[in-house]
């Protein structure tokens, strides 16, 4: 039996992380991952159930210097509709556009998407491309502690990450991309959005004078964790974007992806799609 002993809906971050320091807390935000997982028995509730939606300052999108900061409780709908994101990081809006359904987008938080640590997490992909970092807060020695972890280093295995159970993810931060940044996100499936990605590919970098620099490539559902495709990045970095480099990138995508067979697709199809999408996205960038 899942025996919940207390329920909390803290208003302040301090309250929240203090409770987490005491141990065995299950956090929920939109509940769109937690509910199906607890209902099916895949996950069990801890002694304390904590609703983080009421914590002040935990949601919202803001400019902070040359960075953009997105609160962990910000919903996918908010990202999809935000003018700043549309201007500065359209790749993130694009992923939000192809995320679940309206109802799910209205509930689903970015923090939840990241903490759920699914290789298919659709918001993770563009955030990797944007080289985002996450802020983790905890309570220790009578004070609020925070640390920042690059998203790339956050995931350690299937549904596993470096966040300790007493830490709350509070925000996602990334530098505003330069004006010559181009980024594209592509997700598979005949449905526009309500589809767990069979494969997703995100590619971004600075493109000037036909040369691609600071290239970052992310792939979803082709490895145990959301993947930075370093092989593809190397194939493109510092090179002119042309048919040759695209061909090399596609070959590298094939090597970077190590998918498995499951009910949604075979490994063959996933590899096939990764190559198709890599080529498609790069051709798109080239066309622009």
């Amino acid at each position: 039996m899942q025996e919940i002993k207390s329920y909390l809906a803290p208003r302040s971050l301090d309250e929240a992380v203090k409770a987490m320091a005491a141990g065995d807390v299950t956090v929920f935000c939109g509940g769109t991952d937690l509910t199906p997982q607890t209902d099916s028995g895949a996950k069990r509730y801890g002694a304390t159930l904590m609703n983080i939606r009421r914590i002040e300052g935990l949601s919202g999108i803001a400019e902070a210097g040359d960075s953009i900061r997105i609160g962990a409780a910000t919903t996918v709908t908010e990202v999809r509709r935000d003018p700043l994101i549309a201007r500065a990081a359209p790749i993130l809006a694009e992923a939000a556009e192809h995320f679940a359904s309206d109802q799910i987008r209205n509930a689903a938080s970015l923090g939840g998407n990241i903490c759920n640590a699914s290789p298919a997490g659709d918001m993770i992909n563009p955030l990797l491309v944007l080289d985002a970092a996450v802020e983790l807060a905890s309570w220790a020695d009578g004070a609020l502690r925070t640390r920042s972890v690059p998203l790339e280093n956050f995931f350690t295995g299937p549904r596993r990450h470096v966040k300790r159970p007493d830490e709350l993810l509070t925000a996602i931060v990334f530098r505003k991309p330069a004006t010559d940044f181009v980024g594209w996100f592509r997700k598979s499936g005949p449905r526009p959005a309500l589809e767990i990605s069979t494969v997703s590919v995100g590619i971004g970098g600075n493109l000037s004078d036909g040369v691609f620099r600071n290239v970052r490539v992310a792939m979803g559902s082709v490895a145990p964790t959301p993947l930075r495709a370093h092989g593809v990045e190397a194939a493109l970095e510092g090179r002119p974007l042309d048919a040759d480099s695209i061909r090399a990138a596609v070959a590298a995508a094939d090597a970077d992806a190590t998918p498995i067979d499951d009910v949604r697709a075979s490994a063959w199809y996933r590899k096939h799609l990764v190559k198709v999408f890599t080529e498609e996205v790069l051709n798109h960038v080239l066309g622009n």
């Binding site: 329920y7 929920f28 509940g31 939606r53 709908t77 109802q103 799910i104 209205n106």
Partner: peptide, 20 residues
């Protein structure tokens, strides 16, 4: 589907306590 604070959500996923 229900409307919560003007936006629609799947009530099967939402904890009842979150209606507070």
């Amino acid at each position: 589907t229900v409307k919560v604070d003007g936006r629609t959500l799947n009530s099967c996923l939402m904890h009842a306590v979150d209606c507070d």
